[in-house]
């Protein structure tokens, strides 16, 4: 299939491993899905310490279930990426460990206190879910199918995250202040979640033309702000003055991009931002520590392969 035909046919769930896709499509889809898979893994690692630090048994159980879900989402997405035939799962996991693998800006920042958890568990997950809901219509069928399952599970994550926010904002003055401080710190990063304005986005044009993604960064960010700014206000959070966000006449939002730190954003995008580097290395060490588990599985698989071949 050539690019012209791909553009022509590009509808929801149109292409799968049985189609002869051009290199350019397969590489663009791999880049996008690998980024998504890496983000699931790095997000899970960011939240993992809170299984231990959760303030109650209910929260501990929920965090543990959530971290398990996110790792599962990573697995689903590496499978969807692998089906494009560009990279194997092992290659992608190695790239994540050696610092080549890219992932979401928000997961490069450390998260230290319980009061910060709604920033990821409600706002970032909510932003991710906004985006993922549109990706159910991606033209790469294995990606869209992965999104069906991811979105099915995410409703729990986002509502649980909001429940933590609700609880803390109805708690003591100190708790409220801690959440507001966390919000002031995280809000610009959350606004940057969707990336730079459409004009500055390098890969967007092609990905949209071939149906890999459905909505622009601006559209997604606007839809997110529309739903989540009122939620923040409902719980008594004050929206920071910067970045300035203005509502347009049609109800969408315009963000003053110059109010945001794009040097930091692009350093993060290159995996050059220090806390993020520490988190990448931390995960690499964990991966290394359980190398023996993969070794055992590989041995079993090889042994089974030999037996099956002998039986034939």
């Amino acid at each position: 299939m050539d690019i012209a035909e791909v553009r022509d046919r590009a509808g929801p769930r149109e292409f799968n491993a049985g189609d002869d896709m051009p290199e350019e499509y397969r590489e663009a889809a791999t880049r996008m899905i690998q980024f998504h898979a890496n983000s699931e893994i790095m997000g899970a690692y960011l939240e993992r310490p809170f299984v231990r630090q959760a303030p109650s048994l209910d929260r501990k159980l929920a965090f543990s279930a959530k971290v398990q879900d996110e790792i599962g989402h990573g697995q689903l997405l590496y499978r969807a990426a692998e089906s494009l035939g560009v990279k194997t799962r092992d290659e992608m996991l190695d790239e994540l460990a050696n610092g080549e693998g890219k992932f979401l800006n928000c997961f490069h920042y450390p998260m230290d206190s319980w009061a910060e958890t709604p920033m990821i568990a409600f706002f970032v997950d909510g932003a991710a879910m906004r985006r993922q809901a549109t990706l159910k219509s991606s033209s790469w069928e294995p990606y869209a199918h992965a999104m069906d399952k991811v979105c099915f599970e995410e409703g729990f994550h986002v509502k649980h995250g909001e429940d933590i926010l609700r609880e803390l904002m109805n708690g003591s003055r100190k708790e409220q202040r801690m959440v507001q401080d966390a919000f002031d710190e995280w809000w610009p990063r959350i606004v940057q979640f969707f990336g730079p304005t459409d004009d500055d986005s390098t890969h967007h044009g092609f990905a949209e033309e071939v149906g890999l993604k459905q909505m622009t960064n601006d559209q997604l960010r606007s839809a997110f702000l529309n739903a989540y700014v009122p939620k923040a206000e409902q719980y008594g959070l004050e929206i920071p003055e910067y970045p300035r966000i203005e509502e347009r006449d049609d109800g969408t939002y315009e963000v003053r991009e110059s109010d945001l730190d794009w040097d930091e954003f692009f350093a993060i995008a290159k995996n050059d931002y220090e806390p993020g580097v520490g988190q990448i290395d931390g995960r690499a060490r964990t991966q290394e520590a359980v190398e023996w588990v993969r070794g055992v599985l590989d041995e079993r698989e090889q042994a089974a392969g030999t037996t099956a071949a002998a039986a034939d």
Binding site: D58, L61, A62, A65, K66, D69, F122, G126, M129, R130, Q132, A133, C151, F152, E153, E154, G155, F156, V158, K159, H160, E162, D163, R166, A223, F224, A227, Y228, K231
Partner: peptide, 24 residues
């Protein structure tokens, strides 16, 4: 604890959250 329906003190923040809860 791993079902969206458990967290009844909050209204789904967006349509996709409500859709997910309905599927669950």
């Amino acid at each position: 604890y791993r079902w969206a329906m458990t967290y009844n003190d909050v209204e789904p923040a967006a349509r996709e959250v409500a859709d997910s809860e309905a599927e669950q």
